[in-house]
Amino acid sequence: MADGTTTVSAPALRGFAPPARRSSLRRFAQRRSTVAVLMCLPLICLIAGLVVYPFFYSIWLSLLNRAMTRFIALFNYRYLLRSDTFQLVIFQSCFFAITAVFFKALIGFILAHVMHNISGKDQKLWRGVLLVPWVIPPALSTLGWWWMISGDYSAINWLLEQVGMHPVAWLASTWWARIWVVAVNVWYGTPFFMIMYLATLKSVPDQLYEAAAIDGATWLQKIRYISLPMLRNIISITVLFSLIVTFANFDIVENLTAGAPANTTHVFATYAFQLGIQSGNIPLGAAVSLFIFPILAIFSIFILRGVGRRAQEGI
């Protein structure tokens, strides 16, 4: 039944009077909600095994000493917060994630509009081409970028030399290294934003733009008063998803700089790997990786609250 309480019709049960206890058990088993839960149970178990258990296990690990033999409460967190290197890691992680997501969203937004205005066949072609960065495994594409910008034999330096300029040790400079790490992430992640915005733009009625054009609206006004409000929810969701993924990024930094120069490009994931796996201090590595959680939780609460509110208001 549509109310989700039972799937068995009354006539089928007519004339059958089982004991009350058995009947209620049967009714419970035949409820749609029970069936749904049972059918989802394998997935729930999988998520519990692969997400929930590791999450709580890593919290437990972060409260242990280096040898994992003694409970030391929040000592690992206190140690990290007092470490100059970790303060640098917090700064770099926030700089990396926020800057990269901002540019991915901005460029994705622009590209989506450009694509939206390209006609049928050409749009398919360009859409495919622009999705290429997103489908290449990031470790491989980062290697490609590294070949282009490494200090010694890079393509970009070769070009600079061809026009009479001196080669630049891009990754040896703290700020250039940070900028390149962000740039590679933007290159990799922008197609995701583009495709999401493009899909949403396709659902915006053309009449709105036509009416705005008749009223003499400029392209900027169309974007401000039509596109942005219509895309607000998808922008929020994509920004949230991308923040989560970008904060947890490992491949790009590890392949491009491995934290150099002098730890200035380390992000949470690479620093957690260095402390947890390379230094053999798994509890400390777990503590570093868990620092991302409250930051992302705060972002998630604000963004999802906004999305929920707009959904209720029917915006």
């Binding site: 200090g151 010694d152 040790a169 040896a172 290294a177």
Partner: peptide, 21 residues
């Protein structure tokens, strides 16, 4: 030292020698 010495990884010195640099 080379301009990118601060970002040298374990392959950099190999490449420097092999490329006659």
């Amino acid at each position: 030292l080379p301009a990118d010495t601060v970002t040298y990884d374990d392959a950099s010195n190999n490449k420097a020698l092999i490329s006659d640099s």
